[in-house]
Structures are given as structure tokens and as C-alpha cells.
Simulated scan of single mutants.
Amino acid sequence: MEPVIRNEQDSSNPILGPGDGVSSYVMLYVKHGPGESSPDHVHDWEHQAFITEGAGILVCGGKEYPIKTGDAVLVPGGIRHQFINTGDVPLHRVTVNPVESVAK
């Protein structure tokens, strides 16, 4: 099998997924403009996020945690959470989820 290389500018989420031969995890690239956020949501699986740019807060289990460029985040499964950009520049993150997160 050959490696798969995708650029976020030419791809939709997940950037890497089952259509690329991914068997265990999918990769997403998410951008939140100033004042924007992910939906307030919960799902069974844990996932990881790496903040590549910006700052904000992670609301997880009703508590607020500051996040910034360079932070690696583990969000436990089954916990309500939301990423919120509280800064004046975009908040970018790479998120890794189990493949079942995109199973249809």
C-alpha cells in the first residue's frame, strides 16, 4: 500500500478516513473563527485534539479548561464537551477520532 497524503485545503473532513484505507482512526482539521465553537455534544468514544493555532477554552464535563497553540487534548468518551475560540485569531485543531465516528 502507498502512503496517502492530503492537504487540508483540498479536502473535506475527515481529511483521512475509510476511503483512504484507514482502518482504526480518522483525522479531521477544524477551524473556529473568533467567537465560534464546535457544537456542545457528547459521544461514546474518546478522541484527541492538537491545537495548531490560536487559543480558547475546552468545556468538558461542565468545567472550562484553557487551551492554546501546542496543547494536546484528550477528551474522554461519554463526556459532554465543546471547543470555544475566545481569542481574536482563528483556533485551529487536528482531531483524531476512532473510525466508528464516521461509520454510516
Rank of each mutant, 00 (worst) to 15 (best):
L58T: 07
N85L: 00
H47Q: 06
Q48R: 10
G61K: 10
P76N: 15
I79L: 15
G87P: 10
H81Y: 04
T52E: 05
S37V: 04
P66T: 11
G87F: 14
Y65F: 11
E36K: 09
G61I: 14
N85R: 01
Y65Q: 14
A72T: 08
V42N: 11
H43W: 04
H47R: 06
D71M: 00
G62N: 03
E64I: 08
G56S: 07
G54A: 13
G54M: 02
A49M: 08
V59T: 10
H41S: 14
I84Y: 06
E46S: 15
A55W: 03
N85T: 02
G54S: 09
K63H: 12
S38P: 01
L74N: 13
C60A: 07
E53I: 02
D71L: 00
F50H: 03
L74P: 03
W45K: 10
E53F: 15
T86Q: 04
V73F: 07
A55V: 09
V75S: 13
F50V: 03
E64M: 15
S38D: 02
T86D: 01
A55P: 01
E46W: 07
V59A: 14
E53W: 07
G78P: 03
S37Q: 07
T69Q: 14
H47M: 04
D88L: 14
E46H: 13
G70Y: 05
S37I: 04
G77N: 05
W45L: 05
L58Y: 04
H81R: 13
H47S: 06
V59C: 13
G78F: 11
K68I: 00
R80A: 12
P39D: 05
D71Y: 01
F50N: 01
C60E: 04
G77Q: 11
W45V: 08
V73L: 12
A55Q: 14
Q82Y: 03
Y65M: 12
P66A: 13
I79Y: 12
G62V: 08
E36Q: 08
S37Y: 03
G33I: 01
T86M: 02
N85W: 00
I57G: 03
V59N: 08
G56V: 11
G77R: 15
G54H: 04
G56M: 11
D71W: 00
E64N: 14
P34F: 03
S37A: 12
H81W: 03
K68H: 03
I57E: 14
G78S: 05
E36F: 10
K68P: 00
V59W: 11
G62I: 13
T52K: 04
F83T: 05
D40G: 08
E53M: 10
H41C: 11
H41D: 04
F50P: 00
E36G: 07
D40V: 11
T52S: 10
E46Q: 05
Q82F: 03
A49N: 02
H47V: 05
F50R: 01
